[in-house]
Amino acid sequence: MGRQKAVIKARREARRLLRRDSRSHKQREEESVTSLVQMSGVESIGMARDSRDNSPIEARNAAQERYLKAIERKKLIFATGEAGCGKTFISAAKAAEALIHKDIERIIVTRPVLQADEDLGFLPGDIGEKFAPYFRPVYDILVRRLGASFMQYCLRPEIGKVEIAPFAYMRGRTFENAVVILDEAQNVTASQMKMFLTRLGENVTVIVNGDITQCDLPAGVFSGLEDALRRFSDDEMVSVIRFTKEDCVRSDLCQRALNAYA
């Protein structure tokens, strides 16, 4: 009997140790997941309590009014003009609004990075880290309008509701059920612009923003935005918006600088 009791006691002790090890392992896993979430800045969507800018997107001048109406009604919008006219802000804010209201499934933002060649190889980090500084102007607006946690959720590869990609990655794609924003479009070539505009599928709104006065393409290379502005005009699907320096709303100082360099 003494030996049988010892065996039972040993079994109980073994089960107790297994339960303790299991709880400890589970706790370590949870801590690891928590650490990853904190490091990546991603929050559980159910726990998100971010403030989201829900203020109305209102035009501050006649050109912005035309731009807003074009985004709401047309499929392809070209907007060109001086810095500070609200081209990037309005396009990103309207894209966020469409995503929140589930009018579209995703937002795609692209821009040429290093002139026409987009040579990212020498920059440190993966492609997202290389491209991040160039995407920052649009990113900040989307975070403001979507909320930081929801934005991080949308950026997850398995979710893909917000995609950020260098312009070179647009080849071979088809855009559907999305708002697609091409920013700094003056720095793509005419052939690249043709490639981009032939990617368009169903239920898509494409916004092409740029300033042809700030083209960084090599001498002798014609801007794809300037070429497109000569080829397209307003119709039932397309709208062309031309901002002037008088439409600058960034600040009085920005307006002063534009006038100084006019």
Rank of each mutant, 00 (worst) to 15 (best):
Asp216Glu: 12
Arg231Phe: 03
Gln186Phe: 01
Phe232Ser: 02
Val179Met: 15
Lys194Ile: 12
Glu202Thr: 10
Ile181Gln: 09
Ser223Gln: 11
Met237Tyr: 10
Phe175His: 07
Arg171Met: 12
Ala190Ser: 13
Gly201Ser: 13
Asp183Phe: 06
Met195Val: 08
Ala168Asp: 00
Asp183Met: 06
Asp183Ser: 11
Glu202Phe: 08
Val204Glu: 04
Phe232Met: 07
Leu225Ser: 06
Cys215Val: 14
Gln192Tyr: 00
Asn187Val: 08
Ser223Glu: 07
Gln192Met: 09
Gly201Met: 02
Thr198His: 07
Val179Trp: 06
Phe222Asn: 13
Met170Lys: 10
Leu225Pro: 06
Met237Lys: 14
Asn209Ala: 06
Leu200Ala: 11
Leu182Val: 13
Asn209Phe: 07
Ser233Cys: 13
Gly224Phe: 03
Val208Leu: 01
Glu184Ser: 09
Ala190Glu: 12
Met195Leu: 03
Ser223Met: 02
Gln214Asp: 09
Val204Trp: 04
Phe222His: 12
Gln192Leu: 00
Leu217Thr: 03
Asp234Val: 14
Ser233Asn: 15
Gly220Met: 09
Ser191Met: 11
Asp234Glu: 11
Asp216Arg: 02
Asp234Thr: 08
Met170Pro: 03
Glu176Ser: 15
Asn209Glu: 11
Tyr169His: 13
Thr213Ala: 15
Thr198Val: 10
Ala185Phe: 05
Glu226Arg: 13
Val204Asp: 05
